[in-house]
Simulated assay, not measured.
Amino acid sequence: MNDGTVRGRVADAVRGHWVDTMAPDWLRPYARLARWERPIGWRLLLWPCWWSAGLAAIAGGRPVPDIWHLVLFMVGAIAMRGAGCTYNDLVDQDIDDKVARTRSRPLPSGQVTPFRAKIFLVAQALVGLVVLLQFNMFTVLLGIGSLAVVAIYPFMKRVTNWPQLFLGLAFSWGALMGWAAAFGSLAWPAFALYAGGILWTIGYDTIYAHQDKEDDAIVGVHSTARLFGDWTKLALIALYGGATLLFGLAFFGADAGPAAFAGLVLGLGHLARQIIVLDIDDNDQCLKLFRSNGGYGWILFAGLVADALVQALL
């Protein structure tokens, strides 16, 4: 057993995080199950929700997105991302035990039993349910509908080269939720935003998956990183370019103005830089570029919020 397991640490966990420095010993394995020390995950889940709320504000002629909805989406993203990670680890115990980066995680290392992990999963899901019930009934039913995609995602890496597609279907669902929460229905700009979010997710998670491609090949796990290989940069041009076009279509459909499109152009520059500097064999850089997509989310959201405010004032 490696030192990381003996000391209750996880090899791929963030060092010096409050989970290590402030959380009580009994909570730390559960915090790592939920990836609380890695907020980039819930932020990437949150951005499509906030983009959708910003787009709905523009379409509805409001100066700012509904603040209460933004708070609910944040709490829900943290809870459901944690629940998703816990569920994923329960499903992937056998695979995680064979991969160097993941074998010291709480379940394969024995820091948490499967039974206790399931209780923790239910507790997080209940928090998400409480959040969901604050919205209108259409949005509640729409949120429940996402569970089917969430349930099958962990199994996709065993059967298809495109598990990142299914991650995109799940992680971009918020692009529908923000619009539905504002209007109690859906319209085509929300679907365009959702489709763009899927392509964006495939792109950034392909970069992330390059960290594990050697171990994945050994244990038989599929990914777009393995599929694209040396063609990854060309694939990212298509994915990020397609995402930008679909986001632009969504903005156009919601009658967005120059500020929103300025944010989209700045965001495209951010994505282009990822592609230009990417070294698929540099694991540290792949992780850094993956995390930088949190900044991309801010760029698009800031443009949408600025546009809603400007249009309301004119």
Rank of each mutant, 00 (worst) to 15 (best):
G241E: 08
D66E: 15
A13I: 10
D92A: 04
P108H: 03
A151R: 08
A250G: 07
A23F: 14
G168A: 08
T139F: 03
D282S: 05
D89E: 12
V122R: 07
K118W: 05
L46E: 03
P258K: 04
G263R: 08
R35H: 10
A53D: 09
H210G: 06
V221G: 00
I198W: 09
L309H: 10
V149G: 00
V130A: 15
A11M: 12
G203V: 07
R38P: 03
I40W: 03
A23T: 06
L129M: 13
D307L: 08
W36P: 00
P48T: 08
A250S: 15
G269H: 11
I276Y: 15
I67Y: 13
Y296L: 14
A260K: 07
V130M: 12
A23N: 04
N283V: 13
R35A: 05
W162P: 03
F191A: 13
V127G: 07
Q134C: 14
D281G: 15
S172N: 14
W173Y: 15
L314N: 13
D281R: 13
D97A: 15
G269R: 12
A195Y: 04
D215H: 03
D282V: 05
H270G: 04
W26V: 14
S292Y: 02
W298S: 09
V71S: 12
Q134I: 00
F171C: 10
Y296C: 00
L46R: 03
V127M: 09
A125D: 01
I299M: 06
A180W: 05
W231D: 15
L141C: 13
F166I: 14
P154Y: 07
S185Y: 11
L246Q: 09
D284L: 12
R9K: 14
W200R: 00
G110K: 09
V130E: 01
A175I: 01
F138N: 04
N283E: 14
P48I: 09
